[in-house]
Amino acid sequence: MKSMFDALVKNERHQELLDKASRIAQEARKHIQQTDEDANFSPETLKVIKSEGYPSLPVEKEGLSLYEFLLIQEKIAEGDGSVALSIGWHVGVMMELSLDSLWEPHAFERLAKEVREEQKVVNRAATEPATGSPTRGGIPETKAVRDGNQYVVIGRKSFTSMADHLDYYIVSAYVEDLDQVGWFLIDRHQPGLKVEHTWDTLGMRGTGSHDLVLENVELNVEDLVEVKGDKKASPKGWLLHIPACYLGIAVAARNDAIAFAQSFQPNSLDTTISEVPHIQEKIGQMEWKLMQAHSYLYSVAKQWDEEPERRDEISADLAAVKLAVTNTANEVVDLAMRIAGGRGLSKQNAFEKYYRDVRAGLHNPPMDDAVISMLAKRAMEK
């Protein structure tokens, strides 16, 4: 079976990174059944992620290009999309902080040093039950109240991927004395912080995206590391880790569908179903759709890396890529399910999990309606 990665690997470093991702994917695959049942992230997989030095890649001397990031993410997602999406948030956040200089240098370097030396893992905790996705502009109900040289933070965050396993949380809150939204860097061991196991979704269960509860968490003023509006918002190329993840799920479904078609021979046929015209048509459609998705995703990533001066101009492409690739991934998985037939619905096969997991991409930011509206407005600009 021809690998979808052959055309994407351009040099020796790409291959080394792909090998690293393959080892993570292999470990993740061992724990899929358990993490899907428990709705939690695998600590064994996290150990391999850290032993491979993946958390520190964006803050090492060599850095990590967007193209390389997507390549690794897609490969890990072939093993388990939940693992790719979860660790992708950490890597993406570190890339953003490093590139956009959102924090004071000493605050960022303190975190980066721990990531480099101890492979510590961090994620933003921004979503709340009442506000929905933070990309919609809702003000956090989580509040930070100044008390002398401290802040007291009270609130609840949902969709906190890898909640049980993060070393730090970057928590958004409404900072009353500043009348602004701010972000606090909070150590996982801080008193008043706890994780409630609320994650009970159809797909991407292995992300363990439980609720983070803050009950009178006392923080130093220096823990307020970022205030919204202090820095000009820049396009977030790193968010392309989201479509890369769902594309990896689609590739895994494609691989399994081809393997199934080449091995399954009902007693009504003299050959495997891979020789049946309508099965070949579905395989061809999967290839065509995946070729388009790969071309669009990685060409935009390459442009981001090679033409940094034009990043503001390609912000619309970043959003459009997410819309195009995640929807294509859903279409590919649907085709794979049609090839597998009724067997694809069985828990004995991976197809039903691909089907559940890939749906989640439609609900990661930016949302389809927001992208379509943005593109329409841009098209009508004079």
Results as ranks from 00 to 15, higher is better:
W238K: 00
W199L: 05
I186Y: 05
W183V: 02
I186F: 07
G203M: 05
S172K: 08
D223Q: 14
D223H: 11
K236Y: 01
G203P: 04
N267P: 07
D200V: 09
G229C: 03
L212Q: 10
Q265N: 15
E196Q: 12
S263N: 15
L166Y: 04
L219K: 08
A253N: 01
I258H: 07
I242A: 04
G208D: 11
T198F: 02
S161E: 03
R254F: 13
E226Y: 07
A253D: 01
R205F: 11
D164N: 15
L239H: 00
V225P: 01
E226P: 01
S234Q: 09
H197N: 11
Y169R: 11
K228T: 08
F184G: 06
G237A: 10
D167T: 13
A244F: 09
D164R: 15
A253T: 03
S172Y: 11
T207C: 04
L202P: 05
I249H: 07
Q180C: 04
S172N: 10
A244Q: 06
L224F: 10
S268P: 05
G237H: 09
I242F: 11
H241M: 10
C245D: 10
Q190L: 08
A250V: 05
V195A: 09
A163W: 13
A163I: 13
G192L: 09
H189K: 15
E176Q: 14
L219C: 13
A259V: 12
L202M: 15
R254K: 14
H189W: 08
C245V: 14
I242C: 05
G203I: 10
E176M: 13
T201D: 11
A250N: 03
K232E: 13
T207K: 01
V171C: 04
D177R: 04
E215N: 11
G206T: 05
G182N: 00
G229M: 04
H165E: 13
A173G: 01
K228G: 07
K228H: 10
K194M: 13
L240R: 02
L202W: 14
S172I: 00
D187F: 00
Y246I: 00
V171P: 00
T198V: 01
K231E: 05
L239A: 03
H197V: 00
F184I: 06
A253I: 02
D211R: 06
H197L: 08
M162E: 14
A244K: 06
N220Y: 13
S263D: 15
Q180L: 06
G182A: 11
N220Q: 14
P266T: 03
V221T: 11
K228F: 11
L193E: 10
L219R: 09
D187H: 10
L219S: 08
K231W: 05
D256W: 09
W183D: 02
Y174M: 15
L247M: 14
S161P: 13
G206L: 01
H241T: 01
V225Q: 01
W183I: 01
M204Y: 14
L214H: 02
L247S: 00
G229V: 03
E176V: 15
V195P: 08
R205Q: 12
D187Q: 09
A257Q: 06
G229D: 03
I249R: 02
V213M: 03
V221G: 00
D230Y: 11
M162G: 12
D177K: 06
M204N: 14
V221I: 13
N220C: 08
G203H: 04
D187E: 11
W199G: 03
N216K: 15
V181W: 07
